[in-house]
Nucleic acid binder design. Structure first.
Lengths: 243, 243
DNA sequence: TGGGGCGACACTGCATGCAATTTCCCTAAA
DNA sequence: TTTAGGGAAATTGCATGCAGTGTCGCCCCA
């Protein structure tokens, strides 16, 4: 019926990837559970062909594992897996900002990151919309850092690494009364320092800073796992199984 | 006819992935060229369904690009892309050996890498089989390093990053009369030093060594691009376009 | 001769039928 | 009670038809 003749942004498959990912993160399947094509047909109102394609994509995102004899099952995530994924993201972002420092041509290229960094320096608003705005700014700041690396290969790897739940820089930023303001200040200071390092062509410093910056996410992850209320607010936390 | 009901190791799709990758690296398609499903049907003797799946997989390996309006085209590789891919592999392997150093429990775990390292220390044999053996040992040494990191997430990212042509550690090891013996010695010394650093829990040193080690590949790449004979021997070199 | 519009072809996305294999349950025997 | 075996249902892999859209070239007009 609706065939847009697009392989990447086609309506059906793309819709299915989003819908499935959402359901998975919402905890609608148990870790290790097999996802059969026919079962999803009735659940997602689509034919087997696009469903298979969506499963394939989610598998190489890392959400699903391919079963040797065929089909896919929900991947088992341990706390260690997520922690490592965050660390890897930090390593790659560190490389990105090192590249950015090494490849900077003019200070003018930093206008956008500087703007985004200063935006996020402001106090976190209490309102929901304000907080969503803060999240968005934070995400755009990180993406801008990726862009400044001027490396298509690195950009690809960063995108791939951030598909893992909670690995993305914007995944574990949340407002808890205690942490909220202080971690926001720390993060803003780190952002500022990273940009400064890039501007001064201090590649090694920028790299070290970006790595350390990623460990805010690790800290937040461990905090979230100890907090009941957050478990309810953060979809996907139920995926983390052992310890 | 032959349906093995396997999604990962199924006969048809897997065969197609291998066949297509081989043909691509052999330069049977020109960079940027669109690969149509029907065109491949007659070329590869298979139906559209498994061909589509194979294209999808090659696309997220990074060999193909998805066309926004549908279908896939051969990706355009610049020299900079390959260089960055090698650097990224070095960064990830650096992280792997740092993890290995940080997570080493007993020196006994290093028996296998030590054996592989000492095997590759030997003189490179002149015969073809001997050289193939050397390549295999080198590959297994690196894979063993990955394993020692004890991180499924990192292993995944390393495998993904090494799908790019010439990014894998074993991709650009070749015997050229001038470089052959000297680079082999240098590589062997670096291997030895990396293992030593892991054994001593010197994570930062191991990381730095692994990064530098990857630059042998970069050097070999640049050498290969200047050498006509090598261009003929190394499939895929024709994929690198600009500059 | 150049540019714009229109039409035909080519290509992709989706649906579905078929065949083969896996999986699981139930039974029976040790 | 546990294990081995067999068979039926479930599930995947593959092939192919159909519909819709993108693309390219040709023709007409200025």
């Amino acid at each position: 019926m609706l065939a847009t003749a697009a392989s990447n942004s086609d309506k059906q498959t793309e819709r299915l990837v989003l819908a499935l990912r959402k359901r998975i993160l919402n905890g609608e399947f148990s870790p290790g559970e097999r996802l059969t094509e026919l079962g999803l047909v009735s659940l997602l109102q689509a034919s087997r062909t696009p469903i298979r394609l969506a499963l394939e994509r989610l598998a190489n995102e890392g959400l699903l594992d391919a079963i040797p004899s065929g089909g896919f099952r929900l991947r088992l995530f341990g706390l260690a897996d997520i922690r490592d994924a965050i660390e890897i993201r930090g390593v790659l972002e560190g490389t990105a900002v090192r590249f950015a420092a090494e490849r900077l041509e003019s200070a003018g290229e930093l206008a956008q990151v500087k703007r985004l960094a200063s935006e996020a320096t402001m106090e976190i608003p209490i309102t929901i919309e304000g907080f969503a705005q803060y999240l968005e700014t934070n995400k755009r700041f990180h993406r801008e850092l990726w862009r400044l690396a001027k490396s298509a290969s690195l950009f690809r790897e960063l995108e791939h690494a951030c598909k893992i739940p909670f690995a993305a820089p914007e995944a574990l930023v949340f407002g808890v009364e205690d942490l909220e303001q202080s971690t926001a200040f720390i993060a803003a200071e780190q952002h500022r320092a990273i940009v400064e390092a890039i501007e001064n062509r201090e590649g090694a410093r920028a790299e070290a800073l970006a790595r350390e910056h990623s460990r805010i996410s690790r800290r937040n992850l461990e905090f979230a796992l100890r907090s009941k209320e957050l478990s309810n607010r953060l979809p996907g936390l139920t995926l983390i199984s052992d310890q």
